[in-house]
Amino acid sequence: AKAPAPAAPTPTDQPKEEPKDDRTWNLQFATFWPATDFQVAEGHMGWAKEIEKRTNGRVTFTFHPANALLGANEIFTGVADGAADLGTTCPAYTPGLFPVTEAFELPGYKNDNALVASMTMWEAYKTMDLLQKEYKDVKVLMFWATGPGDVMTNKPPVRKLEDLKGLQIRTVGGTVPSMKALEATPVSMPMSDAYLALDSGLLAGILAPTDTLKGFKLAEVINYVTKTPFLYNIVFMKVMNWDTWNSFPADIQKAFTDVSEEYVEKYGKLRTDHTEGGLQYGIKEHKVEVITLSAEEQARWLKQIEPVVDAWIEKTNKAGLPGNDVVKKVKEIDAKMSQKYGSYGK
């Protein structure tokens, strides 16, 4: 959005006053979620309303949900180049672009819920130079994250590690190594194919957070949810074009900074609620069975996925980044945040 240039100050003999800045902005907001998804309908809309309120309506937004303006893997570059003013997407959709961020999607953290994961990522971004470097092409407004994903199957139910062996599970991006380590067979396919693939029996299951049971209608084709909170979560970013950001006066920049800071926690809570809500919807409307692993069983799974973290550290070290330090730091923050926010929604 090209903002009209501020009106030229009229020359006058009066004592010099700051020229009144009455510019307005309509910002193009790109996101991959459909408009009806809670992330847009409640999350982004709530955030946008709050910004509009605190800027007295000088900043407004035009939403382009469901990849209408930029595809999920185009949003980061598109925002950096100004094709949209701001946007939200996952770093995981463009593997390789954000090597340090990958650390947050590794298995094995305490990672109680989406709130913990969101606060962890945000805290890490504010304190780690390495992370900030990955996003220098854009103005980062905020980060947040999904809750832990669960193994959800059509059939058979997964009650122990052995049940998973050889099952074809839709898995994407950073979670592929974990599923390989658990001896499932990861199948990557677009989300638009997942419903039919589950329905036809081509896929035995999918690894995803339970809000997809409702959001992507998966409850219709899923019968069992095995709680596996330790497997992964996915980070999200909300980023803005630098030229757009620099066109704002200080008070508007402050509104963005303040509201976004508050919304890291709000989004985290929202996702936690909907992860639970999606699960309850599945249980009530489609009689999905929830399977909880015993402590010993969980320990077996965790042992099995240990090499995944080591392999990641090795790969990252090879790329000249301190993989070990990064994982250690994330573990620290995760532990701190788990203590503070881990009980939310329980």
Partner: peptide, 12 residues
Amino acid sequence: RGWATADLLIPI
């Protein structure tokens, strides 16, 4: 930036 595929890590 090192964009690569998710599974086989083929550079794009």
